[in-house]
Simulated assay, not measured.
Amino acid sequence: MLDELREAGTEVRVELADLADAGQLARALPEDLAGVFHLAGVLEDALVATLDDGLLHRALAGKAAGAWNLHTLTADLPVEHFVLFSSLAGLFGSPGQGAYAAANTFLDGLAEHRAALGLPAQSIDWGTWSGTGLAVAAGGVERLAARGLPPLSPEVALDLLEESLGSGRRHLVAAAFDWAAFGRAGLGPDLARMLEGQVSADRPAAGAERGAVKKAALAATGAAARLDVLRRFLLEQVGAVLGQTPESLDTSAPLQELGFDSLMAMELRTRLETGLDLRLSATVVYTFPTVEALADGLTQRITAERPAAPDPAAVHNMAAVLDTAAAQDLAGDEDAGDEPGVPGELAALDEHELAALLAEELDLKGGRHD
């Protein structure tokens, strides 16, 4: 691109400087600077629990501290543009990228701050670009595309940049969306409200509603059928995390060999907890390293938590006992006319209602019989 600019007659000068070092940056900036386009960024993927000062510094230095230094050093210059390349990670969040998301959110806030001072400012929350960018370097383009964020071609991205510059808006999103796939990826409540009207409310049965898959598995007849429900659900979720089709996955292959890392394991756990309405260990993917092993483990977990159905004979005998006891109470208490007719009410209950009554009385729902 630099060669193309030079061939078009543009004077191009390359300077090396640490943006987080205000002194170095000041020496690199020309006095006749007409505009700023800030593209710096560093990915430091880590769970919040494992973030330390070093990770935070590397993620924030170039993007956030660098942007602030550019702001302070150019505040008195007649720059026409001050464009900050932010990311959707700051707007939507991204698993394992808390530090990177914070750095991008800072850019959005800096644009608002500059605008309040009457200075030119624009922050653009970019989606992925094909062929270039941090997502390409990290190998995450296909996975993001499977979650509803396909990459922009550089040509389309530059057209969007030109349109953004002419819009006069200080905060924009420039990205491609596959709304159907985006909805299938599962949205948190805040993001669902943000995108109301864009993402269809018709969510898939594959775990979009909390506990939906657990209910389907429990409704299946027999252990083999329950295992099949969970296996198909797992293949869909593993495929969504990896950006692959369920049919292409080997259920007996270790997930790590399929390409799973710790961040993907956390994302899969979140998806499973939603679909199954279960609390799962952070190490569940390592305890059950294949789809087959995980499906078997989850089937056992769900089956063990399934409430035991009361024995029909016990229901019948207990109903008779309650009916007799209630009749004796009524016969021995002439002033009980205001009480409801318990024998009649019991007689009107069907077996399921009697079972529910017994479960409540004996605390069978919690599995305790004392």
Rank of each mutant, 00 (worst) to 15 (best):
A282F: 12
G127D: 05
A205C: 08
A331F: 09
A138Y: 08
L134Q: 12
S248L: 10
L272K: 00
P151G: 01
T303N: 09
L19Q: 04
A326S: 07
E351T: 12
A192Y: 03
I124T: 05
Q97Y: 07
G133S: 07
F260H: 02
R306C: 12
S130R: 14
G183M: 02
L149Y: 01
V14N: 06
E292W: 04
L107V: 01
R147Y: 02
D350A: 03
R232L: 12
S200V: 13
E345D: 13
V284H: 00
L191I: 14
G23Q: 09
E345H: 14
D363T: 06
V285C: 04
G275S: 03
V36E: 03
R169Y: 06
A174E: 05
L119N: 02
P340R: 15
D32M: 10
V229A: 00
G239P: 03
E80M: 12
L322E: 06
L272H: 00
V284K: 00
N104M: 09
L19C: 05
V136M: 09
A265W: 02
S94F: 12
P151L: 06
R13S: 12
T287Q: 11
D323P: 03
A282M: 13
F177E: 07
L258H: 04
L29P: 04
A75F: 11
A157I: 00
W68Q: 09
G211C: 02
A336L: 09
D32T: 13
A220F: 11
A326H: 04
G98D: 10
G35Q: 07
P204Q: 11
T50N: 15
A304K: 09
G131L: 06
A355D: 06
E7Q: 14
L278Q: 01
V14D: 09
R271H: 06
I302Y: 10
V291A: 00
L298Y: 00
A17R: 00
